[in-house]
Design a protein around this nucleic acid. Structure first.
Length: 725
DNA sequence: CGGCGACTGCTTTTT
DNA sequence: GCAGTCGCCG
């Protein structure tokens, strides 16, 4: 879509490749875009500005680092590094980490940055927020001192650079006459502002997005940007893409009907000319284990019918669900591939090696210092480190600079460490990047450490891969970096165009360039292409993919929609969009499965069918398991549920009353029999409905959704509950 | 200082 | 059920 437009703009002479800016969210999407454009047009793709928000901002900041107030070789903190930095700050400033948990602080800071807010300009109406803002301020100072920038900082800095510096802003505004954005529904507030700022010189802004596929609100995405875009660019044209070339009719109709239950959509209705196909198949099994077994048996049958394994996907709402499925597939001897999980540059051994490299590039990088100062162990313990950190704090100096003054044995060990870093720096100064990386791995002690470890073989292999990655990067960088023979507009007021200083050019060392590459590109998550295997992934990870045959598993209240999301309408609507995404992944065959009970958090839990099944009209469904004619729960479990109360609708869910193969859906405590769906009254919490049961008779617990008091888990033997329905 | 056993808490995820 | 963190003990 975007690529076709780019090709068209260039071919019709409306734009030069040089005047285009295309933004994506993932490196993968950016790479795909480059590949597709180059297949459409015989142009030098090195002249194209296609990248993620973060990589483009990174380039801007490297090129204009002085105006942005950053050292040219600033390091990028990934999420884990950022958390470590915050923990260190909280400890150092003697802040109560019970009251200000590092994770909460991190969320607060990132949220502020993504809203374009600096601590100085933030208002607090309570003490807790006030303190949070202070911590944010301290954190900023710490990052500035250490010359590091976290992910949201890249965006905010770049935005501030453009908005405050008119010559730079105007330079890029003149240059990029066409800005194209993919997956626009995933943009956050700051990203949208960044785009409108760049497009502010009258450039054309072209965005592709689907509000029904907005599933990242939890990380700051603002679907509202789509409506704002229509409003802000009133002259713009909205083109709805409703014809779907992927799925058969029943599948699309199911998706359409489901998403109709959401409010405030921009509105669209998918259709296909492919014919109805087969209805969506649904099956209910007593346990999660049997659900997995049924899926595996069914997959075996589909493979026998000639379907390729790679064309079959098993989707789930949360990663924890993959365990049983993997186990069952493994037992059955069917090859499978799990997407997600740790990515290459996030692996412990890789992060350790990178920390040594970062220290070589910048000895004042305290985060990296702390990471490897005692890894492998070299006799530097908590005591010594406490002394060092305190002294460094008192001086406002880096750890590296303070080492010499730490007394005792710890002090001399520290000096040894600093000497090691200096030695590594010297040894590698003249080496080509891959050899430098290899040298550091061998002489830092990492290799030796992992040789002595039981499960070290894989880690050593990965370290070898890091050398390969460095070699690939070195080979590619000239093309990565883009300075090519292309003519480019010269603007006297802005001497450092981003072309002039992407990676290798303009004095950024190969090492620094590689390190920023490693931070921005976290690497593949182990999905080796080519092998024909069943595809396992979360629904989130499945966005943008398609398969001939899709299984959506765990279709139960509390799981999908997730219990943490059903309490407010917006959370529930995001869950519904997630289900919409899941359904529309299937081309030919869609199978939805659910289990009456499953092992969750080490406990057996019972749940009822997902409300989403009720939201798909019967004519598009085909029940493969006997669809128990369960008594409908009273439409209002608590009589007179409020309008719009998401749970009012949940309460209409059917219950599975039968007992089968030892699995009960009810439990008797005292004289009272509780089942899923039972209406209860509690002296303090008021009226509610039993949504889940776990444990056995003596210590049975119930998850109860109270009308006013929210979701509670109560021990049935202790809580005094009155059954009202 | 380091290793090991107890304790906790727990969607989704890219950069 | 499992991973990550904490605190105690050798």
């Amino acid at each position: 879509m975007l690529t076709t437009r780019m090709a068209w703009l260039i071919q019709t002479g409306q734009a030069s490749p040089f005047g285009l800016l295309a933004v994506t969210f993932t490196n993968k999407a950016a790479r795909e875009m480059v590949t597709r454009v180059s297949s459409l047009l015989p142009i030098d793709t090195r002249g194209l500005w296609i990248g993620t928000f973060h990589s483009l901002c990174n380039r801007l900041l490297r090129a204009h680092h002085r105006d942005a107030g950053l050292p040219q070789s600033f390091q990028i903190l990934d999420t884990t590094d950022q958390l470590a930095a915050i923990k260190r700050l909280i400890k150092g400033a003697n802040i109560d980490d019970e009251k200000y948990p590092p994770r909460d602080v991190q969320r607060f800071i990132n949220h502020a940055k993504e809203s374009g807010e600096r601590p100085g300009a933030m208002e607090a109406y309570d003490n807790h927020t006030r303190r949070m803002i202070e911590i944010y301020e301290l954190y900023e100072a710490q990052c500035q001192r250490e010359g590091v920038a976290d992910f949201p900082e890249l965006l905010l800095r770049a935005y501030e650079l453009l908005s405050r510096n008119a010559p730079i802003r105007e330079h890029y505004q003149r240059r990029f006459r066409h800005i194209l954005v993919d997956e626009f529904q995933d943009t956050n507030t700051l990203q949208y502002r960044w785009l409108t700022l760049l497009a502010g010189g009258g450039a054309s802004l072209f965005a592709v997005g689907d509000d029904d596929q907005s599933i990242y609100a939890f990380r700051g995405a603002n679907v509202g940007n789509m409506a704002d875009f229509e409003r802000d660019y009133a002259r713009g044209t909205v083109i709805r893409l409703e014809q779907n070339y992927r799925s058969y009719g029943h599948i699309l109709d199911a998706a359409n009907a489901l998403i109709e239950h959401n409010s405030g959509r921009l509105g669209k209705n998918l259709w296909t000319s492919q014919g109805a196909g087969e209805p969506v198949r649904v099956i209910e099994q007593p346990t999660d284990g049997m659900e997995a077994q049924w899926v595996v048996d069914e997959i075996r049958a589909q493979i026998n019918e000639g379907r390729e394994r790679r064309e079959i996907a098993i989707l789930y709402r949360s990663n924890a669900q993959s365990r049983v499925i993997e186990h069952t597939l493994f037992t059955a001897g069917i090859p499978y591939k799990v997407y997600g999980g740790l990515r290459f540059f996030e692996r412990q051994e890789i992060k350790h090696a990178l920390a040594y490299l970062r220290l070589i590039a910048n000895p004042d990088d305290d985060t990296s210092f702390l990471r490897v100062v005692n890894f492998p162990a070299r006799g530097i313990g908590a005591r010594t480190m406490e002394t060092l950190v305190d002294m460094a704090r008192a001086d406002g100096a880096s750890l590296n600079a303070t080492v010499a003054r730490v007394p005792g044995k710890g002090g001399s060990n520290l000096i040894q460490f600093v000497r090691l870093i200096a030695q590594l720096a010297e040894d590698t100064r003249q080496l080509p990047l891959p050899e430098a990386v290899e040298h550091v791995i061998e002489h830092s002690g990492l290799l030796q450490h992992y040789r002595g470890e039981r499960e070290g073989a894989e880690r050593i292999e990965n370290l070898g891969e890091l050398v390969t990655a460095a070699a690939v990067f070195s080979g590619e960088d000239s093309s990565h970096g883009l300075p090519s023979g292309l003519p480019r507009p010269v603007d006297d007021s802005v001497s450092a165009d981003i072309d002039a200083a992407p990676n290798l050019a303009a004095g950024l060392s190969p090492l620094s360039a590689f390190l920023s590459h490693a931070s921005l590109e976290s690497g593949d998550n182990q999905a080796q292409a080519g092998e024909d295997a069943i595809q396992l992934m979360t629904v989130h990870a499945a966005k943008g993919l398609e398969f001939d045959s899709v299984f959506i598993t765990g279709m139960e209240e509390g799981l999908f929609p997730h219990e943490n999301s059903i309490l407010d309408a917006s959370g529930l609507e995001e869950e519904r969009r997630l289900m919409y995404v899941a359904i529309t992944r299937a081309r030919e065959r869609l199978t939805i499965t659910l289990a009456q009970s499953r092992m969750l958090h080490g406990q057996t839990r019972y749940a009822m069918r997902s409300r989403f099944l009720q939201e798909i009209p019967e004519q598009h469904l085909k029940w493969l398991s006997p669809k128990v004619a369960a008594p409908r729960m009273q439409d209002n479990a608590w009589g007179g549920s409020r309008q719009g109360d998401a749970f009012g609708r949940a309460a209409t869910g059917r219950i599975a009353p039968r007992e089968s193969r030892g699995v009960t859906t009810g439990v008797t405590v005292g004289d009272q029999h509780f089942r899923i769906g039972t209406g209860v009254r509690h002296a303090r919490f008021g009226e509610g409905t039993v949504l889940g049961l776990s444990g056995s008779a003596q210590d049975a617990q119930a998850q109860i959704q109270f009308r006013d008091a929210g979701m509670k888990t109560l021990a049935l033997g202790i809580a005094k509950l009155e059954i009202v329905s």
